[in-house]
């Protein structure tokens, strides 16, 4: 039976879409059948990050409204055969989503794939609550920074209130993914430390993704970062996180960029 995962955060811009694409691609690279679903109706980004923006014909809203069938809307990734995308609409907004429509789509996707990863929009209103409604597992993406941490705390509370699982008295499994972590800034006290974040959020840690220019590079190329440059620090961190999501025990490390010989000589950027 497929696992439905929601990637959420509360705060905007912390790395939900990047993480959805990276983890989706990582799981597909490990042989799993994965669909990533964009719930950010009106402000869709997942299609850009996946490099599928020129192949979008039908979207999630079309399917929930019965205008298109699900296989017509699904876009197969050209590079990874086990990865598919269900894009959001760009012309509508979140009010066009209905709970019944989303329930039917999720149920159909569960028959077709091993993993259904829902990329939640930012916020705590309809778009975010519908993205999490049918989830078995939640990945809460947080930057080690006070606003993001408080918003993540809020979203964790909402995961325990507004999901079908919570309403039935069961628990949604929650994992924390700390993204845009910069060890140097944390050491200088400019950023919250990992311990601070875990202390405030009291949620098991799935992975620590370091801040990196690779993320923007990959996004501009329309390729998930784990696929575009699998040896880069964020890619290695996402691959470890995907392994942990599949149940493997992987030691928690914060990967650093591997520096070549010249990198070590000319490592410091001129001011």
């Amino acid at each position: 039976m497929a696992k439905v995962v929601v990637v959420t955060s509360g705060k905007g811009g912390v790395g939900k879409t990047t993480s959805t694409a990276a983890l989706g691609a990582a799981l597909a690279q490990f042989g799993q059948n994965v669909v990533v679903v964009d719930f950010d109706v009106g402000l869709r980004n997942l299609d850009l990050v996946m490099g599928a923006e020129r192949r979008v014909v039908y979207d999630l809203i079309n399917v929930t409204q019965g205008i298109a069938k699900l296989p017509q809307a699904l876009i197969r990734d050209k590079r990874l055969e086990r990865l598919a995308l269900l894009p959001a609409s760009q012309t509508r907004d979140k009010d066009a989503l209905t709970e019944d429509g989303v329930a039917r789509v999720i149920n159909s996707l569960k028959q077709m794939f091993d993993w259904v990863i829902c990329d939640s929009p930012a916020g705590i209103e309809r778009g975010a609550t519908l993205a999490m409604r049918f989830a078995d597992t939640a990945i809460v993406v947080t930057n080690p920074e006070v606003s993001s941490v408080r918003d993540s705390d809020r979203i964790i509370g909402i995961l325990d209130a507004k999901t079908v699982k919570a309403e039935r008295g069961e628990r949604v499994d929650k994992h924390l993914l700390i993204s845009r972590y910069d060890p140097a800034r944390a050491a200088r006290g400019e950023m919250l430390s990992i311990e601070d974040v875990l202390d405030i959020l009291s949620t098991p840690l799935l992975g620590i993704i370091p801040e990196s220019e690779e993320v923007l590079r990959a996004s501009n190329l329309g390729s998930p970062v784990t696929f575009n440059n699998p040896s880069s620090a964020p890619a290695r961190a996402y691959l470890d996180a995907a392994r942990r999501l599949m149940g493997e025990e992987v030691e928690m490390t914060i990967p650093t960029e591997k520096q070549g010989f010249f990198g070590k000589l000319f490592g410091r950027r001129a001011a």
Binding site: I124, R150, D151, D153, R154, I156, G157, I158, D160, S202
Partner: peptide, 8 residues
Amino acid sequence: DKPVRSGQ
């Protein structure tokens, strides 16, 4: 017996 989350 669980933490009280922001907004609750």
